[in-house]
Write a protein that binds this DNA or RNA. Structure first.
Lengths: 237, 237
DNA sequence: TTTTCTTAAAGTGTCGACACTTTAGTAAAA
DNA sequence: TTTTACTAAAGTGTCGACACTTTAAGAAAA
């Protein structure tokens, strides 16, 4: 589960790719905490004690505080003056709101991708989807990998838009919050077959350089995905 | 010029509304720096020296650093390890990208506003627009106030969407960067009359509870606005 | 005079400390 | 026994200091 990277992706990798040194402590801390929160290691709604968390990670409070300020901006933690910080509490309502956001943003991304993706990128995208198709055929229904696959697919289209603002927003800001929902709510799909087909239509539209159609299909695709979540949610009650 | 507030707008105002104390220093600093950058007081692209800036504002480097981390997340400054921070450099390309974002986001906002705005809110919006109409009639062409008026109008529709994610994103995150462009690029409109009419159509659609039409009109409106910017820009060359 | 090396100044990364605020535990009052 | 008052522990807000990195100035070599 690694095609999509956790950290920022516009880093100009220096000579040594994996040198942890030189990268500021605050930044590594930020990434670590983000991951811990997203994956539920630090449970949602839990209070965060700065001294304790700093000690656990072996850093000073100052460094931790800087990381916290950034986590707050990404809406992964909430801070109140003199009262401290808490991990956000996820809600069904917020999830629906995020789907509405995605519908607008990824719709635009698909439109732009139809205009700006290179032929090679489109081919690669088709290959990726073909792989997904095989995986679905093999292990029918219980499509765990498909979940990540879906993410990869959407990720590439956003990249294909070539709009840096859009990329930044979806792949850095919103992405982690969305991933947090996936982790914590389970969110099994049970419509991988249908999603696969919708993805194929999307590629066709992009390949035909039809921005209008690409946007339409993407929006419909995300709406379907939202309805699925709504259905799963109602089931639970 | 104040209907739209600079700072966060979801603050639960305590007993004393104007007490500067109790609000953390870092936060006030963040707001101050944000304003200074947006209004060009600290010029775009300029390097920021932490010791100097801290001294100017009479705070320690630690507090300033926390504010900087947040400014970085809002993409108002860029930081490179060991090299320091610079104010972002605005570009025509980025501005166009932001317009594309706005088209998607505010389009969705208009759609949701048509569903979720209360009748009273719609009436208020109509009143606001009527005021704009009068202002335009008075001082023809040279519509400076209209600029802020346009902002107010869009602001209210976003609020009317009732989608917190959308509101946060547009009114907190993107808003300041956009305002920075307005300040630094001048960006006179010279289409206030047309904008006024487009706004009226939008209200009509919202009033008729026609989400589809509201989104369509908003997107067209923002596209027109973008084309105007493109034209003004080509003029300059 | 131009280039390169050396070294000091400035700047960033990180830490520990202290003051003030909130929380929690305990004792006094009802 | 329940409520209120007081006090200590824990936590947050803010600061100044030190180590390491980069930048810039000046000296030595070409």
């Amino acid at each position: 589960m690694s095609t999509v990277q956790d950290s920022d992706m516009q880093n100009q990798s220096t000579a040594t790719p994996l040198d942890a040194a030189n990268i500021p402590l605050t930044e590594r801390l930020f990434d670590a905490l983000q991951r811990a929160i997203v994956e539920g290691e630090i449970p949602q709604g839990s209070k965060i004690s700065e001294p304790e968390l700093a000690r656990q990670h072996g850093v000073s409070r100052g460094s931790l505080r800087e990381a916290m300020a950034r986590l707050e901006m990404r809406k992964l933690v909430e801070r109140k003056p003199n009262l401290g910080a808490r991990v956000v509490t996820l809600s069904y309502e917020q999830l629906i709101e995020i789907f509405q956001l995605r519908e607008a943003l990824e719709g635009m991304a698909a439109r732009l991708a139809a205009q700006n993706m290179s032929e090679i990128e489109i081919e690669e995208l088709q290959k990726l989807l073909d792989q997904h198709g095989e995986q679905i055929a093999e292990q029918h229904g219980q499509a765990y990998f498909q979940k990540q696959g879906d993410l990869d697919f959407h990720y590439r289209i956003v990249q294909g838009s070539k709009n840096k603002q859009l990329i930044e927003l979806l792949c850095n800001d919103l992405y982690h919050l969305l991933r947090m929902y996936r982790y914590q709510f389970g969110m099994r799909s049970k419509r991988s077959q249908q999603a696969y087909e919708e993805h194929q239509y999307l590629i066709n539209a992009i390949s035909a350089r039809d921005p209008e159609m690409a946007e339409l299909l993407m929006r419909q695709h995300i709406r379907s995905s939202r309805r699925n979540v709504e259905a799963v949610f109602l089931e639970k009650l």
